[in-house]
């Protein structure tokens, strides 16, 4: 309990610090947001009025507090690239749905495929199946996801016609259709990460197999498979969990290239277009989101550790 509270305190403090950093970073960037919003033709009076309206002429701490207050309520103001007609929060919310489901599906694929595969490879260490898996993972690890996306589009979209390339369906329209379409980008995101996880889990398992407690388990007369599942797996998963969490955070931050290939309205593409349009309110919100995701996932990993590893608690 103490451990959880301590981690929770760390979580809150780090979230606050990152919000300060995110906010101040954008104050340092050159450029005038009033000028940016109103255009080069705006008169001095117009600019002044805009600054007054938006609270831009207040002091830095006050502006930070106002921004944070809004951010906590999910209000990041309006997006300039949509001529102040679109709320940043709605914009992000729509895009986030796509990124979220992409992350969920690809993460499920990673876990469901790589863990059994890693165990299988380690169990048959240096055998033919293991060498085969090692070779395949080696290849897939080096293929960039967007290229894989193109291959998937070619094979499943154009040749097999399992889906229509580029015909993204809005989840609000037809959720089933949406998920069906999303499977293919999810595969493109997941495959290289599956390869990495298999390799990582395999080596972690092999390292654990050398340890004394495995010899003890053998001396009890257990079968190899039973030792692997009951004793080794949990120990070997400890480093893998961190690895998986980092991947999840990575996917949640948006997969720009894959979104581009499959023409998905995801977070990554929004970030790119916002940066090129100097839409700072959106960029700021996305950065805050990405940082928070990483911190929160780390918090969850800490909680998982406490749950599986009794040594972490230390009462």
């Amino acid at each position: 309990m103490k451990y959880t509270l301590k981690k929770l305190a760390t979580l809150i403090v780090s979230l606050l610090i990152t919000s300060v950093l995110t906010f101040t970073a954008f104050q340092i960037i050159p450029g005038d947001s009033a000028l940016n919003a109103l255009g080069m033709d705006a008169t001095k009076e117009q600019l002044e009025r805009y600054r007054e309206e938006m609270g831009l002429n207040k002091s830095l701490p006050v502006r930070y507090i106002n921004w944070l207050k809004g951010a906590l309520k999910g209000d990041f103001g309006y997006s300039t690239q949509y001529q102040m007609q679109m709320k940043v929060s709605t914009l992000i919310k729509n895009r986030l749905t796509v990124t979220f489901w992409l992350a969920v599906m690809s993460f499920l694929l990673i876990v469901v495929i790589s863990i059994p595969l890693g165990i299988f490879a380690a169990g048959k260490k240096n055998g033919i199946p293991d060498s085969f898996i090692t070779l395949i993972t080696q290849i897939f690890m080096s293929v960039p996801p967007f290229f894989l996306g193109m291959l998937i589009t070619l094979i499943f979209g154009i040749i097999l016609k399992w889906f229509t390339p580029g015909s993204y369906i809005n989840p609000g329209e037809n959720f089933g259709q949406f998920l069906r379409f999303m499977i293919f980008p999810a595969i493109a995101v997941a495959v290289p990460k599956i390869a990495m996880t298999v390799k990582f889990l395999r080596s972690s398992l092999l390292r654990e197999m050398e340890l004394d407690y495995v010899r003890t388990a053998k001396s009890k007369g257990m079968t190899k498979a039973r030792i692997l599942i009951r004793h080794i797996l949990k120990n070997a998963l400890i480093p893998v969990i961190t690895f998986l969490a980092m991947m999840l955070a990575d996917i949640l931050a948006g997969a720009i290239l894959v979104e581009q290939v499959f023409n998905l309205p995801g977070l990554g593409r929004l970030l790119v277009s916002s940066i090129s349009n100097r839409d700072y309110a959106v960029v700021q919100a996305i950065i805050l989101y990405i940082v928070s995701v990483v911190i929160i996932i780390n918090f969850i990993v800490d909680l998982i550790y406490q749950w599986i590893d009794p040594r972490v608690k230390r009462d």
Binding site: Y213, H231, N235, I308
Partner: peptide, 14 residues
């Protein structure tokens, strides 16, 4: 059956 030297590493820590 066997009794090993290092009881710390010879038990599964989890």
């Amino acid at each position: 059956s066997m009794v090993f030297q290092d009881s710390m590493t010879s038990f599964n820590p989890l």
